[in-house]
């Protein structure tokens, strides 16, 4: 058992920064390939006309989840050494909602806005400025909202430990939900394409 490599000190801090750039290149490359450098492509998710955000995000989640699950099963990856963001369910619920509003208003999220900037989108540059402003505002009010931010703390909780079921069961359920979601998303896209086609036909 030797993965995660960095946690087992197979290489040092300087090397980790070089690897960070390499990993980032892969991240940015596939975000752009998927079309996520375009705000119009991203927000189409919320108008049901192009569900690529859901499809890409969930196939990525399923890929990484299954990879980690099998590597740990084979005894190659120590899951307890993998970082899981601690749960503060209420601030995360409210933060997610605010972020969702920001997504449909601004057209990007922080990662995709960087890809959009790198491919020349000026609105993405403005968006990045907004993100910096929003974080500054958060930093300034942090002392007065720190109580809320650290409330409902549950520590390192994963879905399987929370539900009290085996990890394999949750992994299976996530794959099942993803596949059903892909099928549903494609069905909705087709329905809307047909309806918009019919509308256009009625106009002529």
């Amino acid at each position: 058992m030797s993965a995660p490599f960095y946690r087992y000190a197979l290489f040092g801090d300087e090397m980790s920064l070089i690897l960070a750039v390499v990993i980032g290149i892969g991240f940015g490359f596939f975000l752009e390939r998927a079309g996520f450098g375009s705000a119009k492509k991203l927000v189409a998710q919320f108008y049901f006309t192009d569900m690529a955000v859901f499809k890409v995000m969930f196939s990525a989640i399923v890929t990484a989840m299954l990879g980690m699950f099998y590597l740990s099963w084979a005894g190659l990856l120590d899951l307890s050494m993998v970082f899981v963001a601690p749960t503060y369910w209420l601030p995360q619920l409210v933060g997610g909602l605010i972020l969702g509003f920001g997504f449909i208003i601004g057209g990007y999220c922080p990662g995709t806005s960087l890809v959009a900037v790198s491919t020349g989108r000026l609105d993405a540059l403005a968006f990045c400025g907004g993100v910096l402003g929003g974080i500054f505002a958060y930093g300034e009010v942090y002392p007065s909202i720190a109580g809320f931010v650290t409330s409902t703390s549950m520590g390192r909780v994963t879905l399987d430990s929370w539900l009290g079921v085996r990890l394999s069961l949750v992994v299976f359920a996530v794959v099942l939900v993803a596949v059903l979601g892909f099928w549903g998303a494609t069905t909705v896209e087709r329905k809307l394409a047909r309806r918009e086609g019919a509308d256009a036909g009625a106009l002529t």
């Binding site: 963001a85 409210v94 933060g95 922080p110 929003g134 931010v149």
Partner: peptide, 30 residues
């Protein structure tokens, strides 16, 4: 939208990349 995104991401302890994609893959409840 960017400003809301920045504020919301900090409140949630991450954005669509850190909390959504990464936290989703390791099945974090939050």
């Amino acid at each position: 939208g960017g400003a809301l995104m920045g504020f919301g991401a900090k409140l949630a302890g991450g954005c669509t990349s850190g909390q959504g994609l990464s936290g989703g893959a390791v099945l974090g409840l939050g």
